[in-house]
Computed example of a mutant assay.
Amino acid sequence: MHRSPRRLAAVALAAALLPLTACGSGSEGADTSEGADAAGGAFPVTIDHKYGSTTVDAEPERVVTVGLTDHDAVLALGTVPVGTTDWYGTHEAAIGPWATDLLGDAELPTLLTDTGTGPQLEEIALLQPDVIIAQYAGITQEQYDSLSEIAPVVAQPAEYVDYGVPWRQQTETIGRILGRADEAEQLIADVDALFAEARAEHPEFAEATAIPASPYEGYWVFGGEDPRSRMLTDLGFTYPEDVDAVIGDEFGANISEERTDLLDQGTVVWSVPDPEEGAEQLHQDPLYGDLAVVTEGREVFVEENSDFGVAYGFSSVLSLPYVLDQLVPRLAAAVDGDPDTEVPVAR
């Protein structure tokens, strides 16, 4: 990130005014035993991440989320962030209808706009956060260092690709940050029960492969560590190994026209701005349109900027119940083997 004098001044001001409630350590594999009893809300708690570890000494009151979906878990655990980060640009303060009831009488968080240069340091500094959460994120070492001058930062976990943290770990980690690990475990268990119910009702999912994709700059396929892919495997589907091998160490990638055969799966869940127009354009390409996944009607189309589409993209502990209610019957219709079965658009 380019550090302008204005940015550095904001950071210096925040550092001077803020008594930090936590401290960061640059050592890898730091001992987390002191936070082992955080299930009861005990502090301090130390959390390892991609750039070392961060210790939270006391319950944070002013939380800023840099991770694009992290605020859902924060809200689900009873805290309204003072700042959230924009992604879709479709909802006020980036809070979807599945989460608005949790705001209560609190003020809406300040929406932080990522313009492509990374987290906005001046805006974040003015919010005087106690902690900055970046779980579903891809912040760099330089961005982490800059943010750490404002407040303690819990960056994305090292063991997953950027933007690849599983929703369970995201929720568990945020629960520890907030001193509400027990509540986080219960939230996870409640959503897991919904997945178990769907798998029991649809054993056919376990016999099919599934991938999420987008016609972004050709054919973009989300990798096995993307939250959408994890949701599909949680439902029982198999993420195809040959697709993961092509995508490699990323949360997703474009595939070449020569490899459109990789799209011929049990089902493809397409995220498109306009489902009707998107389907027409995709099907006009003979390299894709002649595949069995098309001719046998095994596609699901999601309107990506609709409430449902945003919730699907989030695939968070808070949005997943909202998503599963619509998506499960559409997936069942897509994999039933009957091309005459209508698969309604998910809006």
Rank of each mutant, 00 (worst) to 15 (best):
R7G: 07
L13I: 04
L18W: 01
L18N: 15
L20W: 04
T21P: 00
C23L: 11
S25E: 10
G26L: 04
G29S: 02
A30F: 06
D31G: 00
A38F: 01
P44F: 01
T46G: 01
Y51N: 00
V64F: 08
V66L: 00
V82M: 03
D86N: 14
W87D: 00
Y88N: 03
G89N: 10
I95D: 09
P97D: 14
A99G: 09
A106E: 10
T110M: 09
I124K: 00
I124N: 12
Q128M: 12
Q128H: 14
Q128S: 14
Q135M: 15
A137F: 03
Y144K: 10
V154F: 15
A155M: 03
A155P: 03
A158H: 00
P166I: 05
W167N: 09
T171W: 00
G179K: 06
R180Q: 12
E183S: 15
A200N: 12
F205Y: 11
A206F: 02
A206M: 05
Y216M: 07
D226R: 04
P227M: 02
R230N: 11
D234W: 00
L235G: 10
E258M: 10
G266I: 08
V268L: 01
Y288M: 10
Y288D: 09
T295Q: 08
R298D: 08
E299H: 02
V300N: 10
Q326D: 13
P329L: 06
P329Y: 07
A334I: 05
D336S: 08
D338P: 08
